[in-house]
Amino acid sequence: MTQEATKGSRIFAAPSPWKTKQKKPKAQKANGVRSLNGRWAYLFTAPFFVMFLIFGLLPVIYSVYIAFYSWDPLDPTYQVFVGTDNFIRLWHDENFWNSVRNTFSIWGFSTFPQMAMAIGLASILRNPTLRAKTLWRTILLVPNITSVLAVAIIFQQLFGRDYGLINWVIGLMGFDNIDFQEQAIPGQIAIATMITWRWVGYNALIFLAAMLAIPNELYESASIDGAGRWQTFRYVTLPQLKNTITFVLIVGTIGGLQVFAEPLVFGSATGGSDRQFSTLTLYLFEQAFTNINWGYGAAIGIAITIIVLVISAINFAITRRLASEDSR
């Protein structure tokens, strides 16, 4: 029976919305509208490209330049070429590696629960027998629209050591109060909670969109085969979500490397008394704008970029492998 369901899903497999979107433009790529004068395109794209080159691309190139200098912003003439010193210093900087570890630790605490909850919620929302669909979907997006700063301030109060609501609940359950702002792992979990709270609903909507693209026939045949709730989910829904899961992972990882406001509010510019919440972006901010160490800050920025590119490349490789398995 379950065999049937998986087989069925292969026969009728609908491409996920992400796949469709990537393929569609390819088919139409070459043919613009012939009767329209193509030279207008330069005028149409000019405002974008001019602004983008000045404020988007130039800073990126400039930051590579800065990273090779030691720079005193109070006296712009004092600017010494130091070669790769900033990068060598970074490689031996324990605080940098600490921020790498913290970033990935917070990422781990937030990503996996978030994925599981988002997929779970989406599969409830996908059910056509659900009532008040639009209402639920809309409520799910509320946390996402608010500023990270406001959210961090609210949660800082909720996670307070002596009078926070969360410690009150922990006390009711008979445990000792937890000092979230001092202890490393509980604090990182608190920060991960803020991130999860913000993104669960958003990701649930992404997964919902992917699930809506799964043809109903699959569910009908699964039900004829007598599949239960869990089996239907495991053998009909889940295999169709591969691409979406990869997409959400990539976007989540890039976002995770940029986490900044939550640890700043929770543990000031150094990321806590013992740097226990110092993330990569917070460390860049600390070096560049608290210590006014621009060359070193630029080197950290380049390091973040390299990490992003490496992770994206790994993700793409995995996606490609999964995609080729699909076509087999």
Binding site: K29, G32, V33, R34, L36, N37, G38, R39, W40, A41, Y42, F44, T45, F49, F52, F55, G56, L57, L58, P59, V60, Y62, S63, I66, P73, I254, L257, Q258, T281, L284, A288, F289, W294, G297, A298, G301, I302, I304, T305, V308, L309, S312
Partner: peptide
């Protein structure tokens, strides 16, 4: 619209979306 460099330009735009925004923040400040 059909114009020379269309393919290259769009790939270029998409490529830059991969760069994290922190990379440019110090130079932008300067």
């Amino acid at each position: 619209l059909n114009f020379r460099g269309r393919r290259f330009m769009i790939l270029f735009v998409i490529g830059t979306m991969m760069l994290p925004s922190q990379l440019g923040i110090i130079p932008l400040f300067i």
